[in-house]
Design a protein around this nucleic acid. Structure first.
Lengths: 147, 147
DNA sequence: CGCATGTAGTTGTATATTCGAACCAGATCG
DNA sequence: CGATCTGGTTCGAATATACAACTACATGCG
């Protein structure tokens, strides 16, 4: 089996084993679906335009619109008109939204620590390092991307 | 930011960037949904009981039953009664199923090679290695698991 | 200035994935 | 031999997602 095939198997097994195939439930047990959790954490530290959020999450604009509506209905985010573009929407978290983002961050940290505990201690920093490599590689190797 | 938090961000970005959040379309462009593709590749080299397949994919038995029905309808898999247990079903790929599994494997290999090309050459084997570590860690750290 | 074209966002529709519950048949254990 | 467990199937419901059609605003060209 080639290196690439081994990588494919490992990625698949990780995604399944980690529970990422269930979009309505986060692996860390947070109280939203995966997509909303990702949106929340993207918005935790910066205000974004709705389309920017979509680009970061790799989602169609219609899907983003619905996700944001959910966040707004939970009282976690607010839509404001974009100051520089009459079509646009600027997203910000409410106070409750920042609280939720903090809780999410903590839940993820705990879940990831449990994961890392199962990795030999002398290789943990390597894991993080390699995942960042992969993240960059995925961005650069999008079928339609510039890479 | 802690190591665990950095890992969380990297995992999220990778999953999104690689397109793993779209269950109806495989990142490698194969002609089925993600779940069927995973099942197909699990069955490529071993015959499994339906429940074993479910355990490997992390899916409920009802979901597995549906996926297998789809594979059977495509002419890729066959259900046979298990020889040692009258309740059980043994799954095997048909000839067409093995062909499909080969095509899938090749598509995934190409997709993964495109990904690996974006990783510095001297770190590629490390990437595979670490992903396997993570896969094992995910299995061992299931919230309800034995780990 | 005014129309053609492009872009941000919303809503409607369709498809895929998943789970849990209800149910059946065969196994296992007292 | 009856009670309970286990592997599978079917049904119903929830959720995420994309694409298409539409609105509103922006931009660029004559």
């Amino acid at each position: 089996m080639s290196t690439a095939e081994e990588l494919a198997d490992a990625v698949v097994s990780f995604v399944r084993g980690f529970g990422l195939h269930r979009p309505e439930q986060t692996p860390c047990g947070f109280e939203t679906g995966v997509a909303e959790a990702h949106a929340l954490s993207e918005l935790a530290h910066v205000s974004l335009r709705q389309m920017e959020l979509g680009a970061r999450l790799g989602l169609a604009k219609s899907t983003v619109s619905r996700i944001v509506t959910n966040l707004v209905e939970r009282g976690w985010a607010a839509r404001e008109p974009a100051s520089d573009d009459g079509r646009g929407v600027r997203l910000t978290l409410t106070h409750a939204g920042r609280d939720a983002a903090d809780r999410l961050s903590e839940a993820r940290r705990q879940r990831m620590e449990a994961l890392l505990e199962q990795v030999p201690i002398d290789r943990r920093s390597e894991v993080v390092d390699v995942l960042r490599l992969l993240q960059k590689a995925a961005d650069a190797s999008r079928p339609d991307g510039t890479g």
